[in-house]
Design a protein around this nucleic acid. Sequence first.
DNA 1: CATGAATGAGCCTTCATTCAT
DNA 2: AATGAATGAAGGCTCATTCAT
Lengths: 203, 203, 203, 203
Amino acid sequence: MSRRSGEQAAASRPPRGIPEETRDRLITAAARQFNRFGFHGTDSNSIAKEAGYAAGTFYKHFRNKREVFLVVYERWLAAEWKEVDDELSQVKNAEKTARRIVALVIRFHTEWSGLRASLMELVFSDPEVRKFFRRQRRRQLDHIMELRSRLRLPLQTSEEDAIFMCMTERVFDAIGQGEIQSLGLDQHVVIESIVERLHALLE
Amino acid sequence: MSRRSGEQAAASRPPRGIPEETRDRLITAAARQFNRFGFHGTDSNSIAKEAGYAAGTFYKHFRNKREVFLVVYERWLAAEWKEVDDELSQVKNAEKTARRIVALVIRFHTEWSGLRASLMELVFSDPEVRKFFRRQRRRQLDHIMELRSRLRLPLQTSEEDAIFMCMTERVFDAIGQGEIQSLGLDQHVVIESIVERLHALLE
Amino acid sequence: MSRRSGEQAAASRPPRGIPEETRDRLITAAARQFNRFGFHGTDSNSIAKEAGYAAGTFYKHFRNKREVFLVVYERWLAAEWKEVDDELSQVKNAEKTARRIVALVIRFHTEWSGLRASLMELVFSDPEVRKFFRRQRRRQLDHIMELRSRLRLPLQTSEEDAIFMCMTERVFDAIGQGEIQSLGLDQHVVIESIVERLHALLE
Amino acid sequence: MSRRSGEQAAASRPPRGIPEETRDRLITAAARQFNRFGFHGTDSNSIAKEAGYAAGTFYKHFRNKREVFLVVYERWLAAEWKEVDDELSQVKNAEKTARRIVALVIRFHTEWSGLRASLMELVFSDPEVRKFFRRQRRRQLDHIMELRSRLRLPLQTSEEDAIFMCMTERVFDAIGQGEIQSLGLDQHVVIESIVERLHALLE
DNA sequence: CATGAATGAGCCTTCATTCAT
DNA sequence: AATGAATGAAGGCTCATTCAT
């Protein structure tokens, strides 16, 4: 978990910026660092620095390190679901859609595998993160139900959805974190199996 | 520090014990704490204290905190596989065996869910842990191959094994960490699905 | 910082007010916070906020936190002496006057006990505050001398005044800060003793 | 509130000292710094440094900065009362004893005036300190009662004791903090007045 | 083998103050 | 006159690790 330096940005930014932009830069920097070094390997001062701000600025926008983490996670999740929704909104060929959704989710879980690893640990070790995580889960299930009715897909219980979601998500993590590859194996088969399962749900 | 600490454990231990026993007590204490508070939430001094030793003793037996973690994990894995092997060595009814193995693995993943969560995070954030983890994986795959030939089970590629292992393990984690239950759902279906898949491999 | 803060006060204030009013509101807010949380427990941003202004406004009216503190103290002292003077300007019955003065001073020291406690500490730790405090003291002694000649009271040295002032003030602090009561005792006796001493000076 | 440096001691001390001695050095250094710079002007790292230790050592002996402060105060109080008791244990001439006690108490309040100023402020701003302070007060009153019966002195209610204690203590503070002198006055009169009052209690 | 006092780098967080708008 | 985003020094506290005994 090596450290970096880099202190170049500060000069090129107006001393009185738009809060939303500052917040945004901080979130982006935080996301990068959490993903690279993990939650415990990232310190709030260096997030601020990478975003081009002083240490104190961080705490004008977030109560603490955990709060940014949650925001980062929320944003990540929203981005993922946005792409999934976009894909679903133009379904023509169910199999092709399933394949594209799986591909994009894997992309997300690969690119943000560090974030995912930290999340899983924090869900265990930090009650606040756990609470937040579970609220998000609920929201996702509701969203899926809504999607299904909108797209006139075959009905399924929320339980079945949850199971499918948990299972596949964990498997996406395994792929994203390189577990399959690290054993020198082809992950095509797993992907194909998930594509099939998703395909079945889409028609 | 003179008043606060209670040294209750110290009495039940030989003042100059057998090294192996000391080590053992340290590992046990470490396992408990890692599982309860996570790797980052556990401090080495308190492991030593819980085991009934002074802070320095810990470092006579382990190079650092990571090293115990690895030993704890190794021991955990060995215990799990021992039970799995025991189960397999007396196969009569394949389905029943599959069901029992799934049950015992879930038991392990539930009882040690904190350890698992920390492991996943460290595999990402700590290169040493990652290396160790992957070596273990290899060993497991080899062990499965060996089991199969010993038990004259139908052949399967190591790839298929790996996929099965990764996927199910992640799902066991999800169960052990209470994700399914926390959504208020019955996890019976997932378990049944895994039992079936395992059953298929056993005959 | 976008969600948490509530800006309730802002409405009741002209957006570009008379400087003196702004200053006044800041002083009032500062007084309240110093009295509640102490000098070190109060932050300048929150004074501005309570007064209905932005952080920077505070520093347009005061050089620093200490400066408002001094102004607050000065104002407090002036208010106290105003009431004392009012009482003295209509002396008919010396004993009754003594009693009323003691009562009002105790009221001041009780209502502003937090301010007093902070003052005492700053007089010690901050040379500027000390200097200011001593100048005020001088002024008080001069004022007493002047009062005496105006009211044709029996002469007394400035030393005797100073001693009386210091001693009684400290005792008023003790009462105001609840030291007597916290020991479960009746503070009537102390008060009576001071009333008597003051009475003696008034005729 | 200027800062000092000085880092010479560390080498001349055994790396494995007696805890009680370490604690003692820390308390002594803390007392000095609190007395010079006030509670808020003192930082725990520099206490450790002045005592000849690293920052962490401080926290092996005290839970936090407040805790040392309380210990320092307790020790200060004990030392004062020890001298008072010693004086009382050999009473021959009541007046002379009264005079000597007043002198020694003034010495304590002068030498430790900074500590006293900080104490008064913390009693107001910190609930824990307040609680502690009040417990000590109770103890002092009990001690006085006990002394009186041991020395066969004229009876007096605990209330009268409390009042006497509060009042005189505050006046000692005023003397110790130089309030009398700073007004260019002779504090002899005050002292004499207190001596008399104490004298009256001793026979 | 075991002790346990000591280390010290480093992290999180606060807050008085500034300055361009 | 007022704003409020930004600063950055500083301080409390933790904890993995060492080493003389």
